[in-house]
Design a binder for these strands. Structure first.
Length: 747
DNA sequence: GTTTAGGCAATTTTT
DNA sequence: TTGCCTAAAC
């Protein structure tokens, strides 16, 4: 077991151990299993290993995320647990939709049984290997549900499980749950894999949940060659069932283990390492260790206060621009990290304004877009007609006259008879449907069947192309000429291009074998990034959530949105454990940086369309003063790089007197809208409001979002002047000058 | 069965 | 602000 502090070379340990096993100990790569949590981590590790031992050897390693590796094994062994090998993988959206329909069918209150909540309960149960029957008998679970008035969760769970089974589908958690089931009930299979995986390595061990822990333990039982690498200080997935206990259990399960602590940080400056140490010390439950570094002291951590999320973005963009000028750093040396994906927008806008290239990681991935999910649902249905979620999604898209009523009747019938929607659709009961509907259903069924006949003769790309036009989906998207419509059309084209690449590459690898649509589908649900966009300019600023940044490093890091209720998140204020997880998250963010960290917060921020006031995050306070450079008095000058030193004397961030606790109440009460905001925050005189001097009716102005426009009306007195502006691109807009930041266009 | 207007909730974090 | 859902008009 390697307990590796941030930046101590954890990945290097893993990659070199693997390389050493192969190159020096002559272990066959087929006998090595290496598990990671993210696709990104596994891809990076594979590349690094390939560099040492060569592409050919590296390719044969069993390396990937837990989910992808065990999905692969489950496909081979599916028949043992009653599944076909082409089972569908339901993603989160499919799962939630299925839960929604079950709640509806059971006539439960969907306000009480929100799909998110129910999914959370089911997922939690599965990750602790509690099946539906066991759940119904589990006193703890049942009383937990009863106490919140949701005593039917167990029944939903049971129904959900049987519906997935009927649809030949597994969700993400099933991939691990069923693997455990497989090994538990089929000793022969278990032995086979125990013998196969002579060496097992696990990255980010602190993030394993019980289900994953047990798989690893089972597989390693035969050879006991298990190497796990982790850092309890970087455990940030407890919300997903990750369990620090696993590190402690490891010691118990493997009495002959060795523990190696890596405490030297090779990544960051002294300032960063010491500041981060100070922060993480505030956590109670942790393995004692002190990270140190031989690196230079480095720059202090600059803290910047902005008035709004947009201004925060402006500061970051300007600061990147300035730093680049001073240091000749590449764009790719900068990263902007935030707590929630929604925060990316203000950053994007600011970067775009300065023409700084950027790339957003995570967020809504390519494969989660509606049009992509639609077309893939057709693919899924072709490969597995029992896939209920796919069928529901496309049966009436593009519109073909099979509406809600018909679908509901089919579902009721399916539940009554135990048949699948697909079976019923192909033999509709004349007593239930009129002839017109029966014809429409039959036509749909015939169409899908016609695709199925091509499944084995056509390759994935040909069939994909055929399906997108034969279903009318391509035509439907093509007819939409709005910018969004065009982009949707292009996305489909991109998917088809990706399929062509895939088909060609795989065909080459498999020496001419036809790569079918089913082959293409195998991993699609597990892909998160659109991996293909490696082309083009890669010198870009990186934007991502802190979770997504784990394992990465950048010379210059901006951590933005350091505000109470945002970071730490509102949801985490309930318990010490949750707050500690947020603190570890902050620790992860800090330790991503090599040379310099910049912290930023805004005193007001748009959330749900409302401008709400914000307080600086407690985490800023938790960084020792000696490492900080605090913001100067409100000013609009955006310090670049090493500027603005005078603030050293300034007191710790002036925090408004805390109103009586219970934060939630404060925000639940009539929210501070723009008007009240002004009074509370009394706009500084030199605010960055619109440039109102000389603005008259008829003036030409420019707006960040709407572009150029003409003022048609001005009313009210400063500072509450309101302008009506006509923008050719967006039409007539009413804007408050003090917020709109209009620029006067000189004529 | 289809289209559209209006009401309402939503934001943690990922495979 | 957006996106989803429902109810009513077509």
């Amino acid at each position: 077991m390697v307990i590796a502090g941030a930046g101590s070379g954890k990945t290097k340990v893993l990659t070199h151990r693997i390389a050493h096993l192969v190159a020096v100990n002559c272990v066959d790569p087929f006998n090595i299993l290496a598990l990671t949590f993210t696709n990104k981590a596994s891809k990076e590790m594979k590349e690094r290993i390939a560099k040492i031992i060569g592409e050919g050897q590296a390719r044969n390693l069993w390396m990937g995320t837990f989910h992808s590796v065990f999905a692969r094994i489950l496909r081979v062994e599916a028949d043992k647990i009653g599944y076909p090998s082409n089972f569908t993988i339901y993603d989160t959206a499919d799962t939630k939709n299925l839960i929604k329909s079950i709640v509806k069918e059971m006539q439960l209150d969907d306000k009480l049984y929100k799909s998110n909540f129910v999914y959370g309960r089911i997922s939690n149960a599965k990750n602790n290997l509690i099946g539906p029957d066991q759940y119904l008998e589990d006193v703890d679970q049942m009383s937990n549900d009863a106490s919140s008035g949701r005593e039917h969760i167990g029944k939903i769970y049971k129904q959900y499980t049987s519906r997935c089974f009927k649809a030949n589908a597994m969700d993400f958690d099933d991939l691990l749950f069923k693997t455990n089931e497989l090994f538990r009930d089929h000793a022969g299979v278990m032995l086979k894999y125990q013998n196969k995986f002579k060496y097992i390595l696990v990255d980010e061990y602190q993030d394993t949940n019980f289900s994953q822990y047990l798989i690893v333990k089972t597989l390693a039982a035969r050879y006991q060659n298990l190497c796990v690498v982790g850092d309890d200080s970087q455990s940030i997935y407890a919300f997903r069932g990750a369990n620090i206990q696993n590190i402690l259990n490891f010691r118990k399960d493997n009495p002959e283990h060795n523990v190696f602590k890596l405490e030297q940080n090779y990544r960051s400056t002294k300032t960063i390492v010491q500041a981060a140490n100070g922060v993480i010390k505030k956590n109670k439950g942790r393995i004692e260790k002190t990270i140190w570094t031989d690196n230079v002291q480095g720059e202090k951590i600059q803290v910047h206060r902005a008035r709004s999320d947009n201004e925060e973005g402006g500061f970051v963009a300007n600061n990147i621009f300035g730093t680049k000028m001073n240091t000749q750093a590449a764009h790719s040396e900068f990263a902007i990290l935030y707590r929630t994906n929604a925060q990316s927008r203000a950053m994007e806008e600011a970067l775009r304004k300065l023409n700084i290239p950027y790339r957003i990681y995570g967020g809504l991935s390519f494969y989660q877009r509606k049009e992509i999910k639609d077309i893939i649902s057709y693919f899924r249905l072709t490969a597995n007609p029992n896939d209920e979620e796919a069928l529901k999604r496309v049966v009436n898209y593009p519109v073909r006259g099979i509406g809600k009523t018909t679908l509901e009747k089919l579902i009721v019938e399916a539940n009554r008879t135990g048949k699948t929607l697909w079976e019923l659709l192909n033999a509709p009961d004349p007593a239930l449907f009129n002839s017109g509907t029966r014809i429409k259903l039959a036509e749909f069924g015939t169409m899908i069947k016609s695709f199925q006949t091509m499944l084995n003769d056509k390759n994935a790309y040909e069939l994909g192309e055929h399906i997108s036009s034969a279903t009318g989906l391509l035509k439907d998207l093509y007819s939409d000429k709005s910018p969004e419509g065009i982009s949707r059309y292009e996305n489909i084209q991109e998917l088809l291009n990706g399929m062509r690449d895939f088909t060609e590459k795989e065909a080459e690898r498999e020496e001419g074998k036809i790569i079918t649509l089913s082959d293409f589908l195998i991993d699609v649900a597990l892909l998160t990034d659109a991996d293909q966009d490696d082309e083009g300019d890669n010198d870009r600023v990186a934007l991502m959530t802190i979770h997504a940044a784990k394992g990465l490093e950048f010379p210059y890091v901006y951590i933005v949105g350091l505000e109470e209720n945002l970071f730490p998140s509102q949801m985490s204020l309930g318990s010490r454990e949750e707050l500690e997880e947020e603190r570890r998250l902050f620790y992860v963010a800090l330790t991503r940086a090599e040379k310099r960290v910049t912290l930023a917060y805004a005193t007001s921020r748009y959330r749900w369309g409302d401008l709400i006031p914000c307080e600086p995050s407690r985490f800023i306070d938790e960084v020792d003063d000696q490492f900080l450079e605090l913001p100067q008095a409100p000013s609009t000058s955006w310090g670049t790089g090493t500027g603005s030193r005078q603030s050293l004397f300034e007191k710790k961030i002036s925090r408004p007197q805390k109103p009586l606790q219970t934060k939630k109440k404060i925000f639940a009460a009539p929210q501070m809208k723009m008007k009240s905001m002004n009074q509370a925050n009394s706009m500084a005189p030199n605010s960055v409001a619109s440039d109102i001097q000389g603005m008259t009716v008829g003036s030409e102005v420019e707006h960040i979002r709407f572009g150029k426009g003409k003022v048609t009306e001005l009313e009210g007195t400063p500072p509450n002047t309101k302008a009506t502006v006509f923008f050719p691109s967006a039409g007539k807009k009413q804007l408050l000058l003090k917020f709109a930041k209009l620029k006067l266009v000189q004529q």
